[in-house]
Structures are given as C-alpha cells and as structure tokens.
Simulated scan of single mutants.
Amino acid sequence: MMHEDLVKQQDQQIDEINEIALRLHNHANIINTELKDQHVMIEKLSGEVYEKLEKKNFVMKKIWKLLKTNGNF
C-alpha cells in the first residue's frame, strides 16, 4: 500500500509540475507577443525621430546659409 501511495503522490507532483510548465509557457507567449508589439512601435518611433532630425538638419542648414549671406557669421 505504501508503494501505491508513493506512486500516487509522485503522479500528483508530476501533474502539478506540468500545470506550472504550461502556465509558464503561456506567460512566455504573452511576453513574446508584447515584446514583438513593442519592437514594432520602437521601430516606427525610430523612423519618425530620424525623419524629424533630417528635417531639423535641413532647416538648420538653411538658417546657417541665411545668416552667412546676411554677414552675421
């Protein structure tokens, strides 16, 4: 009887470990999805920042040229 109880207890522990592993797997999938979504947002933001910097540099060059033309520099 003691052997059967031990086997039953081990089976229960294995079932619990399996449930924990499944929950961890589900959490990992959720985190992975969130990271992918954030990666897309960061890539978009990076492109927008680059675009704004390019526009700022263009304007700064025009201002610099204007100031040089007017003899301020």
Rank of each mutant, 00 (worst) to 15 (best):
M2T: 13
M2G: 12
H3C: 10
E4P: 00
D5W: 03
L6Q: 15
L6C: 08
V7P: 01
V7K: 14
K8Q: 15
K8S: 15
K8L: 15
Q9N: 14
Q10R: 15
D11P: 01
D11S: 14
D11A: 15
D11H: 15
Q12T: 13
Q13W: 14
I14G: 08
I14D: 12
I14R: 12
D15S: 13
E16P: 02
E16C: 07
I17W: 11
I17F: 14
E19P: 00
I20N: 04
I20H: 05
A21V: 07
L22Q: 11
L22K: 08
R23D: 10
R23T: 06
L24K: 07
L24S: 05
L24Y: 02
H25N: 12
H25Y: 11
N26P: 01
N26T: 10
H27Y: 08
H27V: 15
H27R: 09
A28G: 01
A28T: 08
A28C: 05
N29F: 07
I30K: 03
I30Y: 01
I31K: 01
T33H: 05
T33Q: 09
E34Q: 08
E34Y: 03
D37N: 10
H39I: 00
V40R: 02
V40K: 03
M41L: 14
I42W: 01
I42C: 02
I42Y: 04
E43M: 02
K44P: 00
L45Q: 08
L45R: 06
S46Y: 01
S46I: 00
S46R: 06
G47W: 00
G47K: 02
V49Y: 03
V49T: 03
Y50H: 11
E51M: 07
E51T: 13
K52N: 12
K52R: 14
K52H: 10
L53H: 05
L53E: 07
L53P: 00
E54R: 09
E54F: 08
K56N: 11
K56H: 12
N57Q: 09
N57C: 02
F58W: 13
V59S: 12
M60G: 02
K61V: 02
K61W: 02
K62M: 12
K62L: 11
K62G: 01
I63S: 07
I63P: 03
I63W: 09
I63T: 04
I63Y: 13
W64H: 11
K65M: 08
K65L: 05
L66I: 01
L66T: 08
L66Q: 04
L67K: 13
L67T: 06
T69K: 08
T69W: 06
N70V: 12
G71Y: 11
G71M: 06
G71I: 04
N72M: 14
F73E: 12
